[in-house]
Each structure stands twice: as structure tokens, then as C-alpha cells.
């Protein structure tokens, strides 16, 4: 399934977040996978967990950081795709 800014994302309960110094580690206790995020990625993740909608994350980050809309959209969608691929996030069906 392709994702875009209107895709809704949910975080499985088995995924934990640990902030360690300058980076954040996401850990999936179910699958034993982990992923590290830099400070901007950490902020994206926080917003994603809070709102679940990529567009809200996009709009907030656009206000907070000096970044072009195109670059942000590319980075955000790439991050979301990687999270989904690693089982650290999943696409929420409308029916749910």
C-alpha cells in the first residue's frame, strides 16, 4: 500500500521509545527490532504517536524547522515507510 500525507498511522503497543542522549531508540519487544532516530526524527515520531496523521506531523514540523515543503514531505514519507517496514508502525484502516 502506498502512503501519502493523509495516511493514518498507529503505533503497536509493543513498541517502546527510549531517549538516550542525542538519539531516540524505538524498540519492538515483540519482534526484537530496533531503530534509532536523530533529533528531527524524534520530533516526527513524537508527533506521529500523538496525532497519528502524517499531515498534522508535516504541518507542525514545517512551522518548527527551516525546511522546504518538498524535502519535508519526502523525508516524512520515507521515515513512515521505514517504520512500517520494520513493524514499528502500521497503517490504520478507515474501518478501525
Amino acid at each position: 500500500m502506498t502512503i501519502n500525507l493523509d495516511t493514518q498511522i498507529s503505533i503497536p503497543e509493543t513498541v517502546y521509545t527510549q531517549e538516550v542522549g542525542e538519539e531516540t531508540i524505538l524498540l519492538d519487544t515483540q519482534g526484537g527490532r530496533y531503530f534509532s532516530l536523530d533529533p528531527v526524527g524524534t520530533r516526527m515520531w513524537q508527533l506521529l504517536r500523538e496525532h497519528g496523521v502524517l499531515r498534522t506531523v508535516y504541518e507542525t514540523i514545517l512551522k518548527e524547522y527551516e525546511v522546504t515543503p518538498e524535502q519535508l514531505e519526502t523525508d516524512l514519507l520515507a521515515l513512515a515507510a521505514k517504520m512500517i517496514e520494520k513493524g514499528l508502525a502500521r497503517i490504520q484502516d478507515d474501518a478501525e
Binding site: 517502546y16 531508540i25 519487544t29 526484537g32 534509532s36
Partner: peptide, 14 residues
Amino acid sequence: LRGMYARTWAQNQK
């Protein structure tokens, strides 16, 4: 090093 931390965290959580 990140892997050592992540594995320890996950194992300890269990």
C-alpha cells in the same frame, strides 16, 4: 553499541 543497548533493553523488559 546501539545494538548492545537495544538488545539489553528488550531482554530486560522481558
